[in-house]
């Protein structure tokens, strides 16, 4: 465990309560280049990446949350980064990829299997029982509030791979996260598996989530609930339900 820089405050998995203090207020510092943050303490970048790798391999329903900065092909760098993102995904058996395409408040309803929204990220985390996740490509001001909400209300282990200064409210954070560091994260995943960490979902690939993903990735049109409706009088036991069961029948 890294040095605590004078603060006893630890950024650990929640639920911490409705209004947890911002980690920065509690004295948690940001990591410098070459460093990482693990549960509020400064460690080396390699240690942070290993801790993140172990969490993603061993906790339930590990999920990658790509944000707008990696999801949309708005420049050459993003297009290049996409390949390395999927390289990382391929090293995590059974991983899910749930996008955060933008920051619009999604009302009146959200499909928590298909999308995560910074205004209520806990819905997606809780619905899918996600116990470890990576945020990448999310603008910092939204990432900060999202991480705090997740820590407040769920038991999810959050990892913020940030292209800027990092995030105190994540359980693991590495700053200046560019393509080179994505490669290092992939190598960390390979290394910890080689060192004996057994992935929870060994043998599985990326698990599609949400009907749109399932349709796109498996080439299937999943049955929607309304397709399963049975017209009155045509389903099993229909006549019995209409006329009432005969309690005296043998």
């Amino acid at each position: 465990m890294g040095k605590l820089n004078g603060t006893p405050y630890r950024v650990v998995t929640g639920p911490e309560g409705l209004l947890p203090p911002a980690a920065t207020i509690m004295g948690v510092p940001l990591p410098e280049e070459g460093e990482g943050l693990v549960e509020g303490g400064i460690v080396t970048e390699a240690e942070a990446l290993e801790k993140a790798a172990i969490a993603m391999l061993t906790r339930k329903n590990a999920t990658l949350f790509p944000g707008p900065l990696v999801l949309w092909g708005w420049n050459d760098h993003t297009n290049e980064k996409a390949k390395y993102f999927f390289d990382v995904a391929d090293e995590i058996p059974g991983v899910r990829i749930i996008p955060m395409p933008d920051y619009r408040p999604i009302y009146p309803k959200i499909d928590p299997e298909a999308v995560i929204n910074p205004c209520h990220p806990n819905l997606t985390i809780s619905h899918n029982k996600i116990e470890a996740c990576v945020f990448i490509g999310v603008h910092c001001h939204y990432a900060s509030i999202t991480l705090k909400m997740i820590r407040a209300g769920t038991n999810c282990f959050t990892i913020a791979l940030c292209a800027e200064a990092g995030h105190e409210d994540a359980m693991v954070s590495v700053p200046n996260f560019d393509i080179e560091k994505l490669i290092l994260f992939k190598e960390a995943l390979i290394k910890v598996k080689k060192n004996g960490i057994k992935p929870l979902y060994e043998g599985k690939g990326i698990v599609p989530t949400g009907w749109s993903q399932i349709a796109a990735l498996k080439g299937e049109i999943p049955i929607k609930p309304e397709d399963e409706l049975v017209e009155a009088g045509t389903g099993a036991f229909s006549s019995e339900l209409e006329t009432g069961l005969d309690d005296t029948a043998e």
Binding site: W74, D111, A114, L217
Partner: peptide, 22 residues
């Protein structure tokens, strides 16, 4: 910035909700 903000980065389109694909 560019108008490519309305195109998904390679490989990501399959993972988007249907509304965004549309």
């Amino acid at each position: 910035m560019s108008l490519k903000t309305i195109e998904a980065a390679p490989g990501f389109k399959d993972y988007l909700p249907q509304e965004y694909k549309d």
